[in-house]
Nucleic acid binder design. Structure first.
Length: 299
DNA sequence: CTCCAGGCTGAGC
DNA sequence: GCTCAGCATGGA
């Protein structure tokens, strides 16, 4: 049997500094990336390969990471440029950001060293809002499970590598469900939040484009009236959609890491956020993510 | 069995 | 304003 030499379908994206797919995709900011293979070359421990398949919005991609360069397949040059590069935040210089965050701060320096290569994604605001509605009082593995079931059952099929993946559901697809329509997802009491929010979006109550032009405080006030949205979900939505990188979500882990590593930074969410805003300013969201990532493994 | 997980709602002060 | 039980579900 003659082996057919196919053209390499990979698109080379070149060297990407300050990138680690594991830290970026598994830190809890997104829930639809799967590691599909890891190889470590025995001859040199720097040469390795890390393969991921990810879905965001209605886009799917396979990423290959060799430790310094990214390549992609299952996508196109235009989709790469118009969606995935912005999504992966590749235009941002994380060396500068890390220097600003860790200047004179050994705690942050250690958190950054541990979470090296973690990048904040720029996710679709609708998808981010629903995802973090589901995240409340929940664990990351189960959030992944619920979100993936939600997409499989209600998201449009995306042909991918000879099989099918599923886009994140549209607001319309979720708004038409009755109260038990989401039971298959096992999201518990959060199902009602998801459906009611979808209905409010369809009714025109929520406009992601409007959200993107608002200052932080206004955007937060805009999100809070949604059923099931409190300050945590609102801040996560604004941070992980890339709309407001100064947002500083506070949960159990962040509270613990602040109380332990920054004693005196505050006892309430508001106090911690004031501390973060004063200390890290527009990069508070990235600081939060490094701290969250660090806290989950060390505290 | 209990406790916990990227919290929020509604009721009672 | 503030505190706090209750909430669905599954894993440790």
């Amino acid at each position: 049997m003659e082996s057919q030499i196919l053209p390499d379908p990979r698109i080379r994206m070149g060297p990407v500094p300050d990138f680690d797919p594991g830290h970026t995709f598994l830190c809890g900011q997104c829930f639809r990336w799967t590691r599909v293979g890891t190889k470590t070359d025995a001859s040199s421990d720097r040469s390795r390969q890390d393969d991921w398949v990810g879905i965001a919005g209605s886009h799917a991609i396979r990423l290959q990471w060799d430790g310094s360069c990214l390549s992609a397949s299952g996508t196109t040059e235009s989709e790469l440029k118009g969606w995935w590069r912005p999504y992966l935040d590749l235009a941002e210089n994380y060396s500068d950001l890390k220097l600003k965050l860790s200047a004179g701060d050994p705690v942050m320096e250690e958190a950054i060293r541990f979470g090296h290569g973690l990048r904040l994604l720029r996710q679709d605001p609708w998808e981010t809002l629903i995802t973090f509605l589901i995240s409340q009082n929940n664990g990351i593995p189960r959030i992944r499970s619920i979100v993936n079931t939600l997409c499989t059952c209600f998201g449009e099929a995306i042909p991918f590598e000879g099989g099918m993946l599923h886009a994140f559901p549209t607001p319309e697809a979720l708004a038409v469900l009755n109260s038990c329509g989401l039971d298959v997802c096992r999201a518990g009491y959060r199902s009602a939040y998801v459906i009611r929010t979808a209905q409010q979006v369809v009714e025109g109550r929520f406009d992601p484009n409007a959200l993107s032009s608002m200052p932080y405080e206004e955007a937060r006030e805009y999100l809070l009236p949604f059923h099931g949205v409190g300050v945590k979900v609102a801040d996560c939505t604004l941070l992980f959609s890339g709309l407001h990188r100064s947002a500083f979500p506070v949960d159990r882990w962040v509270f613990r890491v602040m109380d332990t590593l920054y004693p005196g930074s505050g006892k309430t969410t508001k106090e911690l956020q004031a501390f973060a805003k004063d200390r890290w300013g527009e990069n508070a969201g990235l600081a939060q993510e490094y701290l969250f990532h660090y806290a989950r493994s060390h505290l």
